[in-house]
Simulated scan of single mutants.
Amino acid sequence: MRKLIAFLCAGETLLGTLDEAPGPTGLLIVSGGNEIRIGTHRGMALLAQRIAEAGHPVFRFDRRGIGDSTGDNGGFESSADDIAVAASSFRAESGVTRIVALGNCDAATALAFFHARAGIDALILANPWVIEPTDDLPPAAAIRARYAERLRDPREWLRLLRGGVNISKLISGLAKASRKQSQQADGLPARLGSALGHGDIPITVLLAKGDNTAIAFHDAWRGAAFETARARVMITELDSASHSFASAADKQWLYEQVLAAL
């Protein structure tokens, strides 16, 4: 049975969807970016249905200012209250005693920051967001990866020689590719590294290897900020460039990873 649930957060009304099941361990799905709880191409709704059929209740919700929920959209950095009240409502409505939370993109980063307050018992973080945007170009690590791939392709050299490459864009890309990620103590990579390095709950990071956000995270992961996290966080990678795990094979892989964590 799937039902809609309204609950309050800081004076605003949030809408959530509960896929009911008898199991004591449930999945809380937190949407990334400005995505509504259904997910890209209904991906999260379909995942919730399959997980519930496997015996685990699933709760999805729209944070303030997104989808069916009222209020202002303050972005993932302001979602601590939303995640906490969603987890509380999930417990109250389903009776679950253990919550595993799944987030993609900046929802993964939000869960890393705010899970303790919500009393979440385990995390599945897909393609965590570590990018502090400065322009419209992809992150530097993603640009480096793309150039390395193209340099191995003779057809790309022919395109360059024949004038098929935008030189201005190429120069801009090379300039950004030479930059390092922020090493500031208050920068997003450092904050995420600290969050992942503390606590004692199980954390699994899922990466679509060809996705720009995942490439940026993998680049940050090798830095000093993640030294403690590397000892306690498990990373699993999928050979895909789909940020939202869009293909049937990607969806099956994601389902298997989530079910294993549950």
Rank of each mutant, 00 (worst) to 15 (best):
M1C: 01
R2C: 00
R2F: 02
R2D: 00
C9Q: 13
L14Q: 10
T17G: 05
D19M: 00
E20R: 01
A21G: 03
G23F: 05
G23A: 06
P24D: 04
P24Y: 00
T25N: 01
T25H: 05
I29A: 03
V30C: 15
S31W: 00
G32T: 02
G33S: 14
G33D: 12
N34I: 07
R37T: 02
I38F: 03
T40C: 05
T40D: 05
Q49V: 02
R50G: 03
A52G: 06
A54D: 12
A54I: 02
F59P: 11
D62F: 14
R63C: 11
R64A: 04
G65R: 13
D68R: 12
D68I: 03
T70L: 04
T70D: 10
D72T: 13
D82A: 08
V85W: 10
A86F: 14
A87G: 14
S88N: 15
F90R: 10
A92M: 08
E93D: 09
V96S: 09
R98W: 10
L102Q: 06
G103E: 04
G103L: 09
D106R: 08
T109R: 03
L111Y: 02
F113K: 05
F113L: 07
A116M: 11
R117C: 15
A118T: 13
I120M: 10
I120E: 06
N127I: 04
P128Y: 00
I131V: 15
E132W: 13
T134P: 04
D135P: 11
D135F: 08
A140I: 03
A141C: 02
R144F: 07
A145P: 05
A145C: 04
R146N: 09
Y147H: 14
A148T: 12
R150P: 01
R150L: 15
E156R: 13
W157N: 04
L158P: 06
L161D: 12
G163I: 10
G163Y: 04
G164D: 11
S168G: 15
S168D: 15
K169E: 13
L170K: 12
L170H: 15
L174Y: 04
A175I: 11
Q183F: 13
Q184C: 09
A185H: 07
A185P: 08
A190W: 05
R191G: 00
R191V: 00
L192W: 00
L192A: 00
G193N: 03
S194H: 10
L196V: 11
G197E: 02
G199T: 12
G199S: 11
I201L: 12
I201K: 11
L206H: 07
K209I: 15
D211S: 11
N212I: 02
T213C: 13
A216N: 04
D219F: 03
A220I: 09
W221Y: 07
W221V: 05
R222E: 13
R222Q: 14
G223S: 14
E227V: 09
A229L: 10
R230N: 08
D239H: 09
S242V: 08
H243A: 07
S244P: 03
S244G: 05
A248C: 06
Y255N: 00
Y255A: 01
Q257V: 01
Q257T: 00
Q257N: 06
V258H: 01
V258P: 03
L259Y: 11
A260T: 12
